[in-house]
Nucleic acid binder design. Structure first.
Length: 583
RNA sequence: CGGGGCGUAGCGUAGUCCGGUCAGCGCGCCUGCUUUGGGAGCAGGAGGUCGCAGGUUCGAAUCCUGCCGCCCCGACCA
């Protein structure tokens, strides 16, 4: 290039005016060297350190330019995949008349989770089923107009009692929510399948490793639903997952293959054992030198104001969700320690089934077990030789235990892994709950009015971002990959006070941009080389192009691949083709 | 809402038990000179109602009371 320095300066000046956001000398990307005290999980720490977000209040975050850039990219991917399945984008109000929420009884259902406006009868929308149904009412009047898929990407408001994990659980958050409207249940299945496909495409494109869990749809009110989950310590759900066959379930409902307790040929008769100060199953096993499978642990619960004894094998954990469904309608709670003595005559640690005097149920694992040891309902004593078949013939058995890592998958020969996970997206078949409540009807082929059958499909945008970051970082910072990377190339001019470096880097900046890449240019005058390197690693763009004095003398620059740390020294002329090859 | 922790300059913190040169340190920021391949050096400088409000005291970051805010665990969770 045959440019005079003056022209270069002019070009620099002009491009600075137009593209200032992409130059670190003028961009607002406030990186932090130190870890803010309030951040605990990697994604939160990195979002703060890279200047992507700042907290305004608990669970309320502002997106700064760099963070918002990624959010926009995630939105765009979602938009493309939603449009691909025939979705049509809306933009709905966050401020809603309370009345419409009362008509579906959800002001009460949401309770304190819903934000209420003080000086007008408005609420802040925590989701938009009602509003979408409101717009569908009367507007979708014929089966010929169905199906429809309507979606939006909008801020939702929920008064979370405890916001946590940075952006993962906030009081205000971005959500893509979609609603399908169908004339038949078969067509709802199709709309649901379309969303399932779209969701997989979205998360695949974002480069997130996820799995799918069948779930209950809770307060949303519906039938079939699936959750798209990401394994993470920061997750709020605990799930069991099988790598081999992809079985996945919330531990609240998950089951596993385990060995049942053995039934021996010979059943001993009951005998009392003195067990001073032996409380736990571990202590009992150590004291008697036996295996935990020979023991039956007792847990006493209150169900409809009556005690229920729950027997588990060894240290197996009672799963209170399973217990609840086994017992049926009604509140279940563990008994308070003070209640135990009244009910059983003994304290926790010495309670057992023989002589309990109230309802007793047991986990399937204990079915027909004999020669078992349990509490004697007398402090410091246990009872041996318990035969469930002989001594407790009326006892009912249920699946009551919580699965644990390493147990057999219920669907294949592999083993289950149990871990925490973040819910990224949720799809479910709503049915006619909202169309019934709001009177959203269409006329079928026979001219008969029918409620529209709805589906509801959500994705948490911040969670997509957080999950990506949880999965892609190292001790130096974020590791971005396309298509979420805010920039493709981080161009580093090591010494901007050196004229050659400054002008060459500026030329490269223009050339790279002309070639269609998003370039972040570190053109800071005073920052030292090390400072720039560290910032670049922290910000984590896929490729770093390092322009230094020494290499430039040989007409060379260095490319560093962020994910591997590999450095490639190449001739200036090969820069563009090399980057094309690497991205 | 229960349990625990915290609140001192933009960020990270010392000091609080034992009231009195304790308002200090590191990073960042500003000015100048030097420096530029892995978070530069020297010199000078700006910046704090010690979360807020009461109270005790001659005197409060420090002790007492109330409130607010933030984090973690739990409960809750669409």
């Amino acid at each position: 290039m045959n440019c005079s320095p003056l022209l270069v300066i002019l070009a620099l000046y002009l491009s600075n005016k137009i593209q200032s956001v992409m130059k670190l000398s003028s961009a607002f990307i406030p990186t932090l060297k130190e870890v803010p005290a309030d951040a605990v999980i990697p994604s939160h720490i990195l979002m703060l350190r890279t200047g992507m977000v700042r907290m305004l209040s608990a669970g309320i975050y502002s997106f700064l330019p760099l963070g918002y850039k990624v959010i926009k990219q995630i939105s765009e991917i979602i938009r493309e995949e939603m449009d691909e399945i025939g979705g049509q984008e809306f933009h709905l109000p966050g401020l809603n008349p309370k009345e419409i929420w009362e008509s579906t009884n959800r002001v009460e259902a949401f309770g304190d989770t819903m934000f209420h406006i003080k000086n007008r009868e408005y609420v802040l929308a925590p989701t938009h089923e009602e509003i979408m149904a409101f717009h569908a009412k009367g507007a979708l009047s014929s089966y010929k107009e169905l199906p429809q898929i309507w979606y939006q990407i909008q801020t939702k408001f929920r008064n979370e009692p405890r916001p946590r994990s940075g952006v993962i659980r906030g009081r205000q958050f971005l959500m893509k929510d979609a609603y399908s409207f169908d004339s038949t249940w078969e067509n709802l299945d199709k709309s649901y399948e379309l969303h399932d496909k779209a969701y997989r495409a979205i998360f695949d494109r974002c480069g997130i490793k996820y799995f799918v869990v069948g779930a209950s749809s809770g307060a949303m009110g519906g039938s079939k639903s699936e959750e798209f989950m990401v394994k993470s310590e920061a997750g709020e759900d605990t799930v069991a997952h099988c790598e081999s066959c992809n079985y996945a379930a919330n531990v609240e409902v998950a089951s596993s293959r385990i060995e049942a307790v053995n039934r021996s040929e010979e059943s001993k008769s009951n005998y009392e054992i003195s067990t001073p100060n032996v409380k736990s199953i571990d202590e009992l096993c150590a004291f008697l030198n036996i295996d935990e499978r020979q023991t039956a642990k007792s847990r006493v619960y209150m169900f409809k104001d009556k005690p229920v004894l729950v027997l588990m094998s060894g240290n197996d954990e009672v799963n209170e969700t399973k217990l609840g469904s086994a017992l049926g309608e009604g509140q279940v709670r563990p008994c308070h320690p003070e209640e135990l003595a009244d009910i059983t005559g003994a304290d926790a640690g010495s309670i057992g089934p023989i002589g309990f005097g109230h309802r007793i149920i047991a986990d399937n694992r204990l079915k027909d077990g004999n020669n078992l040891i349990s509490g004697a309902n007398k402090n410091d004593y246990h009872l041996g030789g318990i035969d469930f078949k002989r001594d407790l013939p009326e006892m009912e058995y249920f699946d009551l235990r919580t699965v644990e890592s390493g147990e057999g998958c219920p669907r294949c020969d592999a083993k289950l892994d149990v871990f925490r996970a973040i819910e990224l997206g949720h799809i479910f078949k709503l049915g006619t709950k909202y169309s019934d409540a709001l009177g959203v009807n269409f006329l079928d082929e026979n001219g008969k009015a029918q409620p529209i059958i709805m589906g509801s499909y959500g994705i948490g945008l911040e969670r997509v971002l957080a999950c990506y970051m949880e999965q892609n970082y190292d001790e130096r910072g974020v590791i971005w990959k396309k298509p979420l990377a805010p920039f493709d190339v981080h161009l580093i001019a090591l010494n901007m006070k050196n004229e050659t470096v400054a002008s060459k880097a500026a030329e490269m900046y223009d050339e790279l941009r002309k070639s269609g890449w998003q370039v972040l240019f570190d053109d800071r005058l005073d920052a030292s080389a090390g400072f720039k390197f560290n910032d670049a690693d922290l910000l984590g763009m896929p490729l770093q192009v390092v322009v230094g004095e020494k290499n430039l003398k040989e007409n060379m620059v260095e490319i560093k691949i962020r994910s591997t740390g590999e450095k490639i020294k190449i001739n200036l002329d090969e820069l563009i083709p090399k980057i094309k090859q690497l991205i």
